[in-house]
Nucleic acid binder design. Structure first.
Lengths: 245, 245
DNA sequence: CGCATAGTTGAGCACAATCAAACTTTGTGG
DNA sequence: CCACAAAGTTTGATTGTGCTCAACTATGCG
């Protein structure tokens, strides 16, 4: 099914097979989207929502000088802009980072699910609130951590999230973004992101090179990041012992 | 009604009178809560949600040294922790700033609304996504603005939100918090928040003194803050001309 | 090969943190 | 109403983190 990864590791298990089938029935895809492509521009009316099958998508806002601030990075299994369903328009832009594969769900079809399937509705609602929880952690990251901690924290988050959908193994995952993207997610300049990455590499914590992340010492990285994964609401069965140790 | 301010100026109009009555019927209050009181601690199971009638409530997370980072400030009319309904526990703490009056809605009662009232459900969902939209803007604030802009931006946001519930008039509103609270919301030290407030006062932009905010030059303040109020999803009828001019 | 994009390094500067101390306001009990 | 304590605000001096600007190197692609 297209939606096989939806809420994987995060409460998917409580959704009934009928509800899962109903959800899968309303998404159409896959559709290929090239790298660096804008999917949705802020303010435009939105009548469908986008489910990410493969690749990475970011949500961002521009400041007055045109500098981007990423506010979210979406990974496969995420309903990127399901919040557009109740809101009808978005307050930010959405774009692919690398090449991606997506599927679409019309809001009219979601209306039907909401009318007929309260439990599924609750889980769709829940999935949008997971994004909000990550937003809050990003606020913490920017408000309380220095550059080292910010980058370390983002990498810890991505490691856990990608693990839940089977895309990170032993602290290794693909992340086809530039240092500039990383800087824009962490509220630092690309120059400083570069120096920070070198510092993390020199301390044998992690490496980020040509779109590949290797975490060498997750425990130390998580300590530096003050990373506590509860906000990701992983199922108890998901192994976080490496981080929490 | 207790819930008279719910979504005031932000789509309340599309909720039917029956739905409004049904919502009002499940909240019980008012309950008085003293200043500086913890309402919910992170991780604890939550079985009811809290609606703010009067006063200010903050949501926050602590770093390893015990320093707080505020991730949200709630104003009257906000359903503070409605996101706990789908999530069942919170990833952050919730506490009053000044003294507050609240009402409670049991999650079992919300279950019933969700089963019977799809349109109201959608609006409840929507209200939690307004919080997410504000979170995103806070990320932008911390990631892209300096101390001046951060404080200016927060004040602009509060002015608009309080205007929607009738608590800000002509750029004047009560904000019974300390400079320390303000600093914790903006990711700066209290010392620097103090210096920044003086700078804003010296430039005749705004004054914050003994819990009272007076905005002297909203246009210039909003410009400094790069404040664009669309993310607050105000009804078209709400007057934002002072800001957008 | 030539160009464009991304990454790397250095020097100087600016903003904000830290530390420390004085001062002011607020609230309380005598 | 005053004395006192506690909390909050203000100021100064110093340090440090991260930004700016600029040059240079790698990498990949037509």
């Amino acid at each position: 099914m297209l939606t096989d990864l939806f809420l994987a590791g995060r409460g998917r298990g409580v959704i009934s097979p009928e509800d899962l089938a109903a959800l899968d029935a309303i998404v159409s895809g896959p559709h290929e989207v090239p790298a660096r492509t804008t999917l949705i521009r802020r303010g435009e009316p939105v009548e469908r929502s986008t489910y990410l099958l493969d690749g990475y998508v970011c949500r961002y806002m521009d400041d007055r000088q045109g500098h981007r601030q990423l506010v979210a990075i979406q990974v496969p299994g995420d309903f990127i802009d399901l919040h557009a369903y109740p809101m009808k328009r978005l307050d930010h832009d959405v774009a692919t980072l690398g090449p991606a594969r997506v599927a679409y769900a019309d809001h009219r079809a979601i209306d039907k699910l909401v009318r007929e399937r309260p439990m599924l509705t609750r889980m769709l609602w829940y999935s949008t609130l997971l994004d909000a929880a990550m937003h809050r952690e990003w606020i913490f990251r920017l408000g309380r951590l220095g550059a080292n901690g910010r980058i370390a924290h983002l990498m810890c988050e991505l490691d856990v999230r990608l693990s839940m959908v089977g895309l990170s193994k032993d602290g290794r995952f693909s992340l086809p973004i530039t240092q500039m993207d990383l800087a824009e997610a962490c509220g630092v300049t690309n120059v400083h992101a570069n120096r920070t990455l070198r510092a993390l590499r020199d301390r044998d914590l992690m490496t980020f090179k040509s779109g590949e992340v290797v975490i060498h010492n997750l425990k130390a990285l998580a300590a530096l990041a003050e990373f506590e994964p509860e906000y990701l609401y992983a199922d108890w069965s998901v192994d976080l012992s490496q981080v929490e140790g």
